[in-house]
Simulated assay, not measured.
Amino acid sequence: MNIDLLSALSKDNSLTSKVWGRGKLAYYALGMKATCQDPKDFYGHDLIDKLKNHLIVSSSYLESNKFAYSLILIALCKAGESFDTHNLDAISTTPGYYTFGVDEASLVYMAYHCVGNPTYKNAEDSAFNFILQAKNENGTFGNEYSTALAVQYLLFNFKAIFASGNRTLRRQTKTGIEYMINSIERSKVPFTSLLLSVLPAIARKSLLDIGLWQCPSTEQGTTTPSTPTFLIGITVFNNITANNYDHTWSAPLQQGQTLFDALVNLNNTDQTFSFNSKTTTWGQYITSINLMTASTDNRQYWQILGTDGNPLQYGASQTFPSQRDRYTFKFTIW
């Protein structure tokens, strides 16, 4: 990405060509935010300023392609930029009607949701409902591209969907992810445009998640060696209550941190996961995960199983995971 950008900038300092104005620059700006780079200062180039310029120089094309238009607004929003309300008016001139179907509706929804302007709540809800009504009987939302963007929408709204008790939408999210994984496996050389939509969804992320994690400090003059970081598997399983829940995440962890720290890190970096705990004599006691609360009156608790499937000897705050360890938090009755 960086090499491609530098090469393009050496030939066209303003990046005003059609290919950059029709989505590529927006994707690159989002990619830089996702990798903790500053798109406003890319080797002295302000890519966000160049992207805003496309709202003018590419306006004719954007007026007829609300997918690309919405993508640019999402990139600008994630960069902390403001833009005129006429841009928000333009991406959904007829709420509920989308030329490019689910693909367009998903990005229109994410653009409105990112901005958070209550004036456009009806337009946001229209896109929301359009996506829900577009599902197929097999749980997909059309082809791989459409399903990927719809799943991104579902993932970002995962907590609300879970709270509503809508098992159908949870199954569709899982079905959509399986469908996309199979699509990539069938294609020996998948198109870049497919990967741009599919990979975030497979990782259970959306464009709206970009920038929600904490980037490492880049203070000049510091040479403190970084602490090794690795991922562990966290599975939450509940087949006791009506929720019938089974979901797995990859949680970031630094060497020397505990399993409880992994839960905190995951809670801070992934909006599809949340938990509560209380301090006891024996350390932190997990009371609730993703709104599923263990009731002592009903003899319920969260049992923690290790990689070998056996219960842990110590609690989450006294367990120190290693790379590739897997832990299951199982809703249990004693």
Rank of each mutant, 00 (worst) to 15 (best):
Y61E: 10
A8T: 05
W282E: 15
F320K: 08
S277Y: 09
F230G: 04
L155K: 02
I48C: 05
P200Y: 03
T241L: 12
S187Y: 10
T94S: 14
T175G: 03
S14R: 13
D89I: 03
L9F: 01
Q303K: 13
L195E: 05
Y69A: 07
F100G: 04
N238V: 04
A8L: 05
I181H: 04
K330C: 08
Q152W: 02
L62P: 01
S92I: 09
T168C: 01
S17K: 07
I333V: 15
L154Y: 07
L155G: 06
R170T: 05
N265F: 05
Q255I: 14
S106R: 01
Y97V: 14
Y109S: 05
P228V: 10
T99F: 09
L231D: 04
A163G: 08
G211M: 01
D89F: 07
L55H: 01
L169H: 00
L154D: 00
D49F: 07
W249G: 04
K205M: 12
F162Y: 06
F67C: 04
M1D: 05
E137V: 15
I234A: 00
T35K: 06
N136G: 14
T223S: 10
P252S: 09
L207G: 02
K135V: 14
T224Y: 00
N2W: 09
S92P: 07
I333L: 14
N166Y: 00
A123M: 14
L312M: 09
A34F: 02
